[in-house]
Structure formats: C-alpha cells, structure tokens
C-alpha cells in the first residue's frame, strides 16, 4: 500500500485551477482560496502576479520567521519579492486593473448566476465588510474565473439561475472551478467541461441550482 495520500477534493480543485494560469499572463488572485494556487504553480512558469495593495511579481508566501513587516499581499499574507518585482501606490495598482492590463483574475464567490453575474462581497444583515477591490477586478480583468465550493456549508447550490445577493459585477464570470467540476458560463448557461475524479454528472447536476448543459462527448476528469 502506498503511503502517498490521495489529493482531497479541495486540493484537487486548487491544483486544477492553477492550470488556468499560462505563460505571459498578468494575474490577480483573490483573497482566500484563489491565493492558494500560488503553491501549485510550476517554478519555471513565466507569469506576473499582481496584488491590490501595490505589487507585481509576487513570490512565495513567507513563514513568519522570515517575513518583512512592510511586505504583504492584499489578504495580509507575508509575501516575498522575486527578481523583477515592483512596488507602487494604490492609484497605480488600480490603473493597472481598470486599464485592461490584467489578463486574468480568479475570485471567490457566494453566488454565480448562469449569465455570469457574480456576488461575492455582501450578505445583507450578516456580513457587510465592504467590497475592497473586488468590483474593479470583476468588472475590468480581461477574463474572470471563480473558484468556490460547489455548494455552501448547508449544502445549498452556489451556482444559480439568478443571484439573490448584492452583485459585485454583471455578466463577467467566464469559468468556475469547484470541488466537483469545471463549468463554463456560455451564452446558453452553465456547461459542464470537466469532472472531479470520482464525481458523476448526476451529482454535479443535483448540486447546481440552474440547468447544466452536458456535452455528448467524453467529459475529462481532473
């Protein structure tokens, strides 16, 4: 018997989402799950990571013993520079976002609608901390993808016909990575692209709160 532990569903999702980053991209990874993809990126992948608080060229996250008190990412993690990193103020940071220089942003979500609407910043009456930079990232990155668990902690679907929560941006999400599947947002709604290992089409359909288009072809697994 092998001692190697199989990847759990969460780690598998993160590893799959990491493959969305390709050579040459400028990428912003949202706070929470998306920043976890950093640890899954090949060391030789030429990619430029941006963070809202004013840095391009983010390197490895540092343990606290080696941290620099003046060097964090937007989520407060202690990060390191790499050769070619740059620091800049918050106006420059969002000039980069709004002018279309971000090839990709990967964000977390409370809800995603089948038309690509995203809600990820406010649950009225429960959680209203403010949107930070999420609205600009979602509205202006050239490609917006989401990484989230397929359902919330009560088992309710997060992929819906319509969002019920206040929106972050309208019709901007192109692809969703979950613990069950990779799903594209198409002109006709959600379309199943890939299945997590051991997950059936029926399980994905039942966990999705909107119609799911399932291609006739073989569905790849991740």
């Amino acid at each position: 018997m092998s001692d190697a532990k199989p990847l759990d569903a969460r780690a598998r999702m993160i590893a799959r989402a990491a493959r969305e980053l390709t050579a040459g991209m400028v990428v912003n990874l949202g706070i929470g799950l998306p920043t976890k993809v950093i640890n899954h990126l090949p060391a030789d992948l030429p990619v430029c990571l941006h963070t809202e608080n004013g840095m391009t060229g983010i390197g490895a996250t540092l343990p606290y013993e080696r941290a620099d008190r003046n060097l964090i990412d937007a989520g407060g993690a202690y990060v390191s520079p790499i050769p070619g990193s740059a620091y800049f103020d918050s106006a420059v940071s969002f000039a980069l976002v709004r002018s279309g220089r971000l090839d990709l942003t990967m964000l977390g979500a409370f809800e995603v609608a089948q038309n690509g609407d995203l809600a990820n910043w406010k649950i009225p009456g429960k959680f209203s901390p403010g949107a930070g930079g999420a609205i600009e990232l979602a509205q202006k990155a050239r490609r917006v993808v989401v990484m989230t668990t397929h359902t919330d902690r009560h088992g309710n679907p997060k992929l819906l016909q319509q969002c019920t929560l206040p929106l972050t941006a309208q019709r901007r999400v192109a692809r969703i990575f979950t613990d069950l599947a990779v799903i594209d947002v198409t002109a006709h709604g959600f379309e199943l692209c890939e299945l997590a290992t051991g997950v059936t089409v029926q399980e994905v359909t039942e966990a999705t709160g909107a119609p799911l288009i399932v291609p006739d072809t073989d569905i790849p697994t991740f």
């Binding site: 809202e52 103020d89 940071s93 969002f94 209203s128 403010g130 949107a131 930079g133 600009e136």
Partner: peptide
C-alpha cells in the same frame, strides 16, 4: 463592524481603486 451595525459610527464604502482615484 459592530460599531457600524449599532450605529456608533457611519461608514461610507467606496471601491478601492476609486477611493485611491
């Protein structure tokens, strides 16, 4: 957040880059 919820302070939220601008 609790000062906001109880009305002890008023908070105006702004998108981050728009606040900068």
């Amino acid at each position: 957040i609790s000062a906001l919820n109880s009305g002890r302070i008023r908070v105006e939220f702004c998108a981050q880059g728009i606040l900068a601008e």
